[in-house]
Design a binder for these strands. Structure first.
Length: 945
RNA sequence: GCUGAAGUGGUGGAAUUGGUAGACACGUUGGACUUAAAAUCCAAUGUCCAUUAGGACGUACGGGUUCAAGUCCCGUCUUCAGUACCA
């Protein structure tokens, strides 16, 4: 009987599903272990062989942990809100919910064929109202919270109202909008309801504000910073411009420091942590206020205006010879002199015209204009000229810098370009060529009270003196911006928000979910409103607490609902908690469930989410921790980024202007264009099947081909798997031809998990024939052939070598080398003619995480009636590997000449005399007397002659 | 520029963390079986010299430490990924 993987795999997949083999219980005597994959967006294209890579790795680990006695939670679901379904809806009119449902069905079918041990009873879908009810619920919690700097956590907004009513906001230290004015409790109690709401909104963790956003006209929506790559949209590559809009934002900046500190406590890769650190962008320094001198002549007085700058080098304050403001800075208009006004306005206009992208691309051109105004140096009181320049970014720090040309290269270049003086405030340093930026070697000079001080001491002293003057203080600045949370799209979570008199009101949580309304078209309205503006029934009746027709809005209890929807990352920022308790209707996760499961022990996914999903999810986790819904403030203890599996595209070469295609080796003779063709048309030796190509696309039907050696050889290019390159390999085809176990083993065998690597279907025959060999070893013709004979020493050595290696490999996530270990084991056992049950049983348990179907099949043939998945991983017994002797290399003058076998327990002296007496040693020495014999115990023998 | 990762046969990749480099697999070549193909099995396969025995060289490049270096140290080059007028 041959290895009939199709029947075997279908049977066992059915068995697992029917017996709920992998259903996890929320209570168990066993220790818990939570293994999670980043859930997929179910796209219309289905899975390609790259997608399951991480799932297979996590599945192996989950199955292994079950063998090791853990209660394993290994769920799966779908991140099912998203742009592609909406764009498909715009084109075809088909409701995105239908598209999404179909795509999910297709994904599920593909996933099921690979034999994953997911607990599907816990599946979640972010577009399911029962799920997004909780997304909306968390949004409301954020709305009802503010960030208290003193206790360093989120608190109820009602606490804040109490404080305002009893003492005003003078003593509050909160993360809030910068334009907050101070008021007393008397003021507060006098404010109208609308004024109060407007003030509270500036403190809330999610707030409505007019912000400059990244507007993508092609997509008709705003984008978050992490959705923009190189100045164009991540999806589609469309241009992005800056635009002011009223939007919901998330006050993630409140958590900047904790998000940074938390990285120390989690086992994520260094590169990923580094990405997050860069994104948070902490820099420590000082804020300094420069008082603007009155316009025009009289330099003695004070204009009443102050320019606040942020600097990481307050120690260099005596080196300031000018200041630079971003062209967008709000003070520019106020301080510019009439003489300079024309030049300044022209400059501002010119910079505004340049897109963000142009500005980024062009970093070498130095440009700027003098405003005509001066500010007083805080210590010397000398006038400092104020310039504007586009090398200063409005979005970072205060949008203004104190320029120290001797200590900063950009300031230096600017000063050189405009002939501004460059005072030197460093001891023993030449600054005639470039700025001096080495903090460690800094010794300050020419700087009054800072003279002779080194960097650290000088920074402290400068800040101390600034504070004394009341013109500055130590300050930490973060690059992390609040995240814009509104999207002008249909296929996303609706905000549970309606508006009374322009002020946002939350729908009571008992009336969630607020479900998406039906619309005729999924495009923005003619007046530029988001697609929800097309809904007829999109108003909230506060007396009935339900959605009603827009026509009723004039009634006293009916108000318009929010038209925006939430961004893609909303639903994915807490789904890992929802899996713990997916059907709970009272709360997004019960206390009991989350106290038991805590957080993810192992999270596997791509690193494209480094500064998106993985940062936002940490933010929500910390917020929900503050509100005491969760017991831990990091959601994933360990994270692994699996590499991408790349496609190998096939390229044919068309002679320009003709319909003739020339084989790769001959293309240099012609002017050619590259065309990608379906990889299915190519055989393993890169030869093109011309007949199949003619049928593939009509343009090739009448094409001519210039062959080499009678063959058409294609070019190869390794690139991302994508439909448009025709290089997609479908896992279904692989499973059909070789089986799921072969696919699983091969995906692991391709190389280290974290590395990107190209797919090459030809290589799968190696692992496939391993499975066939394994099958053959225990079958004699049609008869299952296992004996009860005692295993030999060699059998046990092979077995225990395998147990040890595979166990180590899984713990270290080097799944690729385990596959080799299995192959070696089967080859050895075949050579040993070992059919012993005592060897096969433990071997199958070791193999089962990798190739579960064949393991189950052989396991049941051994007479077992329970699944192998419940078996305990075999104990490694080192005694089977101990050898009594070992081959030692013997070297002469450092060069290895031969090896000799010696017992392991021999003493140094005995080894020495045995080596000296050895025949080959005698030959090598040929009568000479060696100077020295070096014996490193257990290692090597070196004879120095 | 900065940060992170990495350079090993024709290819993917191993190497017990300083101890016989190239495991395992693909590919290639030769052979067996077959009318033939597929499948399967066997053998060879880092480079060079040698009929053989055997020898020399060899982990991007140049140095160094060590009895011993793919692995550690110094310098150089290259590739990939992320990020950037961040004050």
């Amino acid at each position: 009987m041959n290895y009939d993987f199709k029947t075997i795999e279908a049977n066992w997949q059915k068995y697992w599903a029917e017996n709920k083999t992998f259903k996890a219980e929320n209570n168990s005597e066993k220790p818990k272990y939570y293994v999670l994959d980043m859930f997929p967006y179910p796209s219309g294209a289905g899975l390609h062989v790259g997608h399951p890579l991480g799932y297979i790795a996590s599945d192996i680990y989950a199955r292994y942990k079950r063998h090791k006695g853990f209660n394993v939670l290994h769920p799966q679901g779908y991140d099912s809100f998203g742009l592609p379904a909406e764009q498909y809806a715009i084109q075809t009119g088909q409701h995105p919910a239908i598209t999404t449902k179909e795509n999910i069905a297709r994904y599920r079918e593909q996933l099921d064929k690979i034999g994953f041990s997911f607990d599907w009873s816990r599946e979640v879908r972010t577009s399911d109202p029962d799920y997004y009810k909780w997304t909306q619920w968390i949004f409301i919690q954020l709305f009802n919270s503010w960030y208290d700097i003193l206790t360093d956590k989120a608190r109820d907004i009602s606490d804040l109202e109490t404080i305002f009513a009893t003492e005003g906001n003078g003593n509050i230290q909160a993360v809030c909008d910068e334009d907050i004015t101070v008021f007393t409790e008397v003021d507060w109690n006098r404010f109208s309801s609308k004024e109060k709401q407007s003030i509270l909104l500036k403190y809330r963790l999610t707030y409505l504000a007019e912000t400059e956003v990244n507007w993508c006209p092609e997509l008709g929506t705003v984008l978050a910073n992490d959705e923009i790559v190189n100045g164009v949209s991540e999806r589609g590559g469309y241009p992005v411009i800056r635009k002011k809009m009223t939007q919901w934002s998330m006050r993630i900046s409140a958590y900047a420091e904790r998000l940074l500190q938390g990285l120390e406590t989690i086992d994520w890769t260094d590169s990923l942590k580094e990405s997050q650190r860069n994104w948070i962008g902490k820099s420590v320094g000082a804020s300094v206020t420069f008082n603007v001198l009155p316009l025009e002549e009289d330099l003695g007085g004070d204009s009443g205006l102050g320019i606040e700058v942020f600097t990481t080098r307050p120690d260099t304050i005596f080196g300031v010879s000018f200041m630079t403001l971003a062209p967008e800075h709000e003070l520019v208009a106020k301080i510019t002199t009439s003489a300079q006004k024309e030049a300044v306005d022209a400059y501002i206009e010119a910079t505004a015209k340049r897109s963000e992208r142009e500005r980024m691309a062009d970093v070498k051109t130095i440009s700027g204009v003098f405003t005509g105004a001066y500010a007083a140096h805080p210590f010397t009181k000398e006038p400092v000229p104020i310039w504007i320049g586009d090398y200063v970014l409005a979005g970072y720090g205060t949008g203004a810098v104190m320029a120290v040309p001797c200590g900063d290269q950009r300031d230096y270049d600017f000063a050189k370009h405009f002939n501004i003086e460059i005072p030197n405030i460093f001891e023993g340093v030449d600054i005639s060529k470039e700025a001096f930026t080495d903090k460690e070697k800094t010794v300050i000079g020419n700087s009054d009270f800072l003279n002779g001080l080194k960097y650290k001491k000088a920074v402290k002293t400068a800040i101390y003196e600034l504070e004394k003057l009341g013109q500055g203080e130590g300050k930490t600045n973060y690059r992390l911006r609040d995240a814009v949370f509104s999207r002008q799209r249909y296929w996303g979570e609706p905000f549970p928000v309606y508006y009374i008199d322009g002020m946002p009101q939350m729908i009571d949580t008992s009336h969630l979910p607020l479900e998406l309304p039906e619309v005729e078209k999924y495009l923005p309205t003619e007046t530029g409103e988001p697609p929800l503006g097309r809904a007829d029934d999109w108003a909230w009746d506060t007396s009935k607490n339900e959605v009603v027709s827009n026509d009723l809005i004039d009634h006293k209890t009916v108000f318009p609902l929010e038209l925006n929807t939430m961004p893609g990352w909303a639903g994915s920022s807490f789904y890992f908690n929802r899996y713990m308790d997916p059907n709970n209707e009272e709360v997004f996760v019960s206390k009991e469930a989350v106290d038991y499961w805590q957080n993810i022990d192992l999270y596997i996914g791509g690193n494209e989410h480094a500064t998106g999903h993985l940062l936002y999810a940490r933010f929500w986790q910390k917020f929900l921790f503050d509100k005491e819904y969760l017991p831990v403030d990091e959601f994933a203890k360990k994270l692994i980024n699996q590499g991408m599996i790349l496609g190998t595209s096939a390229i044919i070469y068309r002679i320009s202007g003709t319909n003739t295609y020339v084989s790769k080796g001959l293309k240099s003779k012609y002017e050619t264009e590259d065309l990608r063709v379906d990889v299915g048309l190519i055989d393993s030796s890169d030869e093109l099947n011309i007949d199949a190509l003619r049928e593939w696309q009509p343009q090739f039907e009448k094409a001519d081909f210039e062959l080499e050696d009678g063959k058409y050889i294609v070019g190869r290019e390794v690139e991302k798997m994508s439909k448009r390159w025709f290089n997609v390999v479908n896992p279904d085809e692989i499973v059909e031809q070789y089986g799921a176990d072969s696919l699983r083993l091969y995906e692991m065998f391709l190389g280290p998990l974290e590395q990107s690597k190209p797919w090459n279907t030809a290589g799968i025959t190696g692992v496939h024939s391993f499975l066939k060999k394994l099958w053959k070893l225990y079958h004699n013709g049609d008869v299952f052939n296992v004996t009860n004979v005692e295993p030999t020493k060699d059998n046990l050595k092979t077995l225990h070598k395998t147990i040890k290696k595979v166990e180590e490999d899984i713990e270290n996530f080097s799944f690729n080398t385990s596959v080799s270990t299995f192959m070696i084991a089967v080859n050895e056992l075949t050579a040993q003619k070992c059919t012993s049950r005592a060897v096969l049983e433990p071997l199958l348990v070791v193999l089962s995480p990798y190739a579960p179907h064949i393991a189950e099949e052989l396991w049941s043939k051994l007479g077992h009636t329970t699944s192998i998945a419940t078996m305990t991983f075999p104990e490694f017994d080192a005694s089977h590997l101990v050898e009594s002797s070992k081959n030692y290399p013997v070297s002469f003058n450092g060069k290895t000449k031969f090896t000799m076998e010696l017992p392991l327990d021999m003493s140094k002296e005995d080894i020495e005399s045995a080596v000296m007496a050895h025949e080959k040693t005698q030959q090598q020495l040929a009568g000479r007397i060696p100077k020295k014999v070096i014996v490193v115990p257990g290692r090597i023998i070196n004879i120095v002659g």
